[in-house]
Amino acid sequence: MKVRVALNVNGESREALVPVHKTLLEVLREDLGLTGTKHGCELGECGTCTVLVDGEPVLSCLALPVEIEGAHITTVEGMAEGGRLHPLQQAFVELGAAQCGYCTPGILLTAMALLAERPSPTREEVREALAGNLCRCTGYTKILDAVELAALRMGRQEART
């Protein structure tokens, strides 16, 4: 059964005519050309495919577009604003938190949701928040460092404005 789905992705309205059983992951990558969202299992077991739906990290491999019509979807392509990297992206660049980079989009988005809710998390809280995102390259150390650095910078920015 094909359906026309209207999705709000990264602030843009996008439409696609897709089989209803196509997951959000597949539609983003194959129909909307947003290949920044990656996949490592398609069964909910790795966190690589994480996107934000109304600000909450969810697994796009287990979500159906029909279930989230009307919601705001954020993918890694939507993190930078006006050509400026999000502070998390900037910190990941500076601290070498992306090695192969394959887990990076999912981790960035999960961290972005964390910082929206908890602007200055403890290291343990960052660990907890990222416990659903596997990374095989980094040993997580630089990822945790980068999230902390971004939180610090965003806090300062907040204080200034």
Binding site: M1, V3, P19, V20, H21, K22, T23, L25, E26, H39, E42, L43, L64, V66, E67
Partner: peptide, 12 residues
């Protein structure tokens, strides 16, 4: 990719 089998989705 592992994909879902086809179905009809009803949303009451």
């Amino acid at each position: 990719m592992i994909r879902l089998p086809a179905f009809t989705y009803l949303a009451p």
